[in-house]
Structure formats: C-alpha cells, structure tokens
Amino acid sequence: MERKDKVDHALAKVPEVTLVFWIIKIAATTLGETGGDAVTMSMSLGYLVGTLIFATIFIVAVIAQIRAERFHAWLYWITIIATTTVGTTLADFADRSLGIGYAGGSSILFALLLVSLFVWHRVMGSVSVSTISSPKAEMFYWVTIMFSQTLGTALGDWTADTAGLGYTGAALIFGGALLLLVIVYYATHISRTVLFWCAFILTRPLGAVVGDFLDKPVANGGLAMSRYGASIALVVFIAVCMVVFRQRPARTAH
C-alpha cells in the first residue's frame, strides 16, 4: 500500500491529457517560436547565447519539476515552454549557424528521439505518461520532450522554407495530420501511447510555423507582428486557459 501511494503521488505531477492540454500545448509551442526568436533575433543575442540562456532555464525548471512533491500546473507548463524555447534556439543554431540544414537537422533529431523512446522503453518497460512513477522515468520523459520540441522546430522550418509550402501551407499540413490522428484515435484501437507521442511531436512544427507566420515579414508570407507583442499575447492566452480550465493530474496506471 505504501508503494502504491508513492506511485500515485509521483504520477500526480503529470497533467491529464484533454482537449485543453492540447490547446495549451500548441499555444506553448507557438510561444517557444516567437519567444526564442525574440531573444536570438530581436535582441540580437544570437542562437548560441539564446540556447545557453534557455537551456539554463530548462535545466532549472526540470529539476524543480522532478523535486516537486505533487502536480503543479504552472510549473509543468513553464517547463514545457522552456523545452520549446530551447528547442527553437537549438534547432536554429544547428540548422543555420552550424550549417547542418533543415533536412539534416530533422534527420538527426528524429534519430535521437527514436533512441530516447527506445532506451526509455527498454529501461522502464513503457513510454506511457501514465507510468511515470520515479525521477528516472521523469528524466526520460523530459529528455524525450526536449528532442521532440527541437525536432518540431527543424521540421516546421524545413516544410515551410525548404519544401516551399510557406507558413500557411505548412500549418495546413501539420493541422491536417493532427486531425487525422484524432480520427484514428476514435476509429481504431491503435496504441494510445503511440498516438500521444505522434500528436505531441506534430504540435511542435505546427506551433513553429504559426509562430513564424505571426512574426515574419509580410514579404516572406508572415503578418510582421512584433515578436514581443506576439509572445505576450500567447502568455496571456495560456494563463487565461489555465485559470479558466483547471487541470487535473493524470490518472495513475495500476
């Protein structure tokens, strides 16, 4: 009984996956794009410095999340936003500063993501978020999320720029893919864990192209919004969602 209580206690730090979860996730990934670009481009700090700044925030947030004794929605989403901002700057640094390119960066990150999921499954026996019951499992969870967020940035940029689909076209592609996952979820019995990670990965490139659409110049297909203004608006939107729609901890796996 004592061990079960400890497991339930740990799992309470992971939010229940609902429609609100996905809405906030997409907003958070969009914020990661505008916020990351605000620091690296608008502040002219560059991709390397921006990555170091957000990586520090990410590490601090993950440590706080793991050490927390119960679920804190604000702490959880701050950590998610930290992963998506560092994912933005890290992907841009690899793609542009190191010259790896969008296709190369996406391939490397996809391989790292698969390795992370594989090792997680081999060590813990499952990659389902409902089985996160120890600091080790949480570390796998956040490392996997980190890779997925970085991959999403590179994939979104590659689709919008290199593939020539533009921000609107890329948004339609990733939005359509998410809609297809919803249909598959309700029409089939495919593993919910597989569908969760597919959706989690796809929301990042969707947020990336939406973020670029908001702040890129009109000549490049964007709306030319201020990166600061767009970021503040997204922060307010996320905060309102969290206040209006209270999130519950995920159900435990027995």
Rank of each mutant, 00 (worst) to 15 (best):
A163Y: 08
A163M: 11
G164P: 03
L165N: 03
G166F: 05
G166L: 01
G166W: 05
G166T: 01
Y167C: 06
Y167D: 06
T168Y: 08
G169N: 11
G169M: 11
A170N: 02
A170M: 01
A171T: 00
L172G: 09
I173A: 13
I173H: 04
I173D: 00
F174V: 06
F174L: 09
G175S: 02
G175H: 03
G176Y: 00
L178F: 08
L179R: 02
L179K: 05
L179N: 02
L179Q: 04
L179H: 02
L179G: 12
L179D: 03
L180P: 08
L180I: 14
L180F: 11
L181E: 03
L181F: 04
V182H: 14
V182F: 11
I183W: 12
V184K: 11
V184C: 08
V184H: 03
Y185E: 15
Y185K: 15
Y186S: 14
A187T: 14
A187Q: 15
H189P: 02
H189Y: 09
I190W: 05
S191R: 10
R192G: 12
R192P: 00
T193W: 06
T193R: 10
T193A: 13
V194I: 12
V194F: 12
L195W: 02
W197E: 09
W197D: 08
C198R: 10
C198H: 05
C198W: 11
C198Q: 12
F200E: 13
F200N: 14
L202E: 01
L202V: 04
L202H: 03
L202N: 11
T203N: 12
T203S: 14
R204S: 15
L206D: 06
L206I: 05
L206S: 06
L206Q: 05
L206H: 09
G207C: 13
G207W: 07
G207F: 09
G207R: 11
G207Y: 07
A208D: 06
V209M: 10
V209A: 09
V209P: 01
V209I: 07
V209G: 07
V209N: 03
V210N: 11
V210A: 12
V210H: 04
G211W: 04
D212C: 00
F213D: 07
F213I: 05
L214G: 00
L214W: 00
L214K: 03
L214Q: 00
K216V: 05
K216N: 09
K216A: 06
P217C: 08
P217A: 09
P217D: 05
P217G: 06
P217R: 13
V218Q: 13
V218I: 13
V218D: 02
A219K: 13
A219Q: 13
A219P: 02
A219E: 14
N220G: 12
N220Q: 15
N220D: 14
G221I: 01
G221H: 04
L223S: 01
L223F: 09
L223R: 09
M225S: 08
M225V: 01
S226D: 04
S226M: 05
S226N: 08
S226H: 01
R227W: 07
A230V: 03
S231N: 06
I232P: 03
I232A: 15
I232F: 14
A233H: 04
V235F: 11
V236E: 07
V236L: 15
V236Y: 00
V236F: 12
F237T: 14
F237D: 10
I238K: 05
I238M: 12
I238H: 00
A239P: 05
A239T: 13
A239H: 09
V240F: 09
V240T: 07
